[in-house]
């Protein structure tokens, strides 16, 4: 069964919220395992691994460095060098927080890796703010690779004029200006053209819109989304009702 983009978004979001609310190590680990399984099944494990490593490795390392060595609130000291004290509480705090953050990050990443952006845009393009938000999201994703290649083209054009970037903060700031000015200028000018084109094609209109792309949204998934959102709200309410339970 193909998931409607809003369904995957709701599933990922509510899982992230519930994991954060529950704050239980086993649940976090279970979510991590589930995401790993799903990404294997979906064939996105390599891209997931690369992206997740880029985000989570520094985050987790930072957490363990920070709380593993410096946790003034900790009482059970395992070792200490000078001002640094390794405490059980600190390590546990770092572990729990790492697992919980990893679970949330991974489940959201899985969502963005498997979702079809055009479908999402079509689903969001109901009217008003949705259409505009969908535009910002999709346009950014389209422009990013184009601009990376354009920056490379500008660099080439300037190298052909004898630009050799040298060391030193001021020379680099100058180099920043040389490359950023043509880039920003062309982007701003193009945006002006695009704005006129979009307005001429009725993008500024406030009336109802239709969508050329068909995104099927079975009633079952609509109900599922409601259930997921209610569950997330319930988890938050429960946590706020009993702020110290769990952990």
């Amino acid at each position: 069964m193909r998931l409607h983009p809003l369904t995957s978004l709701a599933a990922a979001g509510s899982t992230a919220i519930m994991t954060t609310a529950a704050a239980s190590l086993p649940l976090s680990l279970a979510v991590i395992a589930a995401v790993a399984g799903l990404s294997l099944a979906g064939g996105v494990e390599r891209r997931m691994l690369a992206a997740a490593a880029g985000i989570l490795v520094p985050l987790v390392a930072s957490l363990f460095f920070l709380h593993g060595l410096f946790f003034p609130e900790g009482s059970v000291v395992l070792a200490h060098w000078g001002p640094a004290r390794v405490t059980v509480e600190g390590l546990q705090f770092a572990l729990e927080r790492s697992a919980q953050l990893s679970a949330a990050v991974l489940v959201l990443l899985l969502c963005s890796f498997t979702i079809s952006v055009p479908d999402l845009v079509a689903a969001l393009s109901a009217r008003g703010v949705h259409a505009r938000f969908a535009f910002v999201l999709a346009s950014t994703l389209t422009l990013l690779p184009a601009i990376t290649t354009r920056l490379a083209r500008i660099r080439q054009a300037q190298e052909a004029r004898g630009l050799v970037i040298t060391r030193g903060v001021f020379r680099r700031m100058a180099a920043f200006r040389w490359q950023a000015v043509p880039l920003v200028l062309s982007l701003v000018e193009e945006a002006g053209t695009r704005a006129a084109a979009l307005e001429a094609r009725g993008f500024g209109a406030t009336g109802p819109r239709t969508s050329y792309r068909e995104v099927t949204d079975p009633p079952f998934q609509r109900r599922l989304r409601m259930v997921l959102l209610l569950a997330a709200a319930a988890a938050v309410a429960l946590r706020l009702w009993q702020p110290t339970a769990g952990a």
């Binding site: 609310a21 919980q100 706020l240 110290t244």
Partner: peptide
């Protein structure tokens, strides 16, 4: 801070 990672503050 010592109330554990799932504390209400994170959610709030």
């Amino acid at each position: 801070i010592t109330g554990g990672p799932g504390s209400a503050s994170a959610l709030i």
